[in-house]
């Protein structure tokens, strides 16, 4: 849900901006101790159910879903091998995860992954590097896999707010997460 920005929203912004960033040494310690990234089986099951419901009239669903999952897993393997230390969580983000999409509409419907990164910044250079090493050579004309980044602080603040407002489903579906 989006609204044009109004002045009344500024209080929320100040509160969010005041959220303290983690101290560098504690962040480094956290990265050392991080459990490994694992495919979230429950997340994939939920995604499959949502997509299946949106594809009730699509006889090609099983084949298309299998292909989509193979593409996602290729992207995840690359993310893990190239950026594993930086990543906290990968979430299926947007309408395809929240409501499901008819897979026959690909590549025109959005298939977006939100990558939550462990640092306190998400510089343009990181977007470019992730695009370069993970998303540009997937070689699938039928699916354009896109991504966005959020820092862990942004994710935590946004998640807490969504839960408080009772709209947790808007957070998307976790597909790759740290086990433990």
């Amino acid at each position: 849900m989006r609204f044009c920005m109004g002045r009344g929203c500024m209080t929320g912004y100040v509160e969010m901006a005041n959220t303290a960033l983690p101290h560098q040494s504690s962040e480094a310690h956290e990265q050392e101790q991080a459990p490994p990234l694992r495919v979230d089986r429950e997340g994939f099951a939920l995604l499959r159910d949502r997509l299946r419901a949106a594809n009730a009239a699509n006889p090609q669903f099983d084949l298309q879903y299998k292909r989509l999952v193979a593409l996602l897993k290729t992207a995840f393997r690359r993310l893990e091998s190239e950026f594993g230390d930086l990543i906290e969580l990968v979430v299926a983000d947007g309408d395809w995860a929240r409501y499901g999409i008819d897979l026959r509409n690909l590549p025109f419907d959005e298939v977006v992954l939100l990558i939550v990164v462990r640092g306190s910044e998400r510089p343009f250079s990181l977007y470019w590097e992730i695009a370069d090493r993970v998303f540009t050579k997937l070689d699938d004309k039928d699916v354009l896999l896109q991504f966005g980044l959020a820092t862990k602080e942004e994710w935590d603040a946004g998640s807490a707010y969504a839960r408080q407002c009772g709209v947790s489903e808007a957070l998307g579906i976790p597909l790759l997460a740290r086990a433990g």
Partner: peptide, 28 residues
């Protein structure tokens, strides 16, 4: 080939509108 993967329609929306579900303003 690079830009199309992360300069998305979502950015068009996020750079203009308040994201009410996660309390995120464009300047955030």
């Amino acid at each position: 080939d690079h830009l199309r993967t992360f300069l998305t329609y979502r950015d068009r929306l996020d750079s203009l509108y308040y994201e009410a579900n996660q309390n995120q303003l464009p300047e955030d």
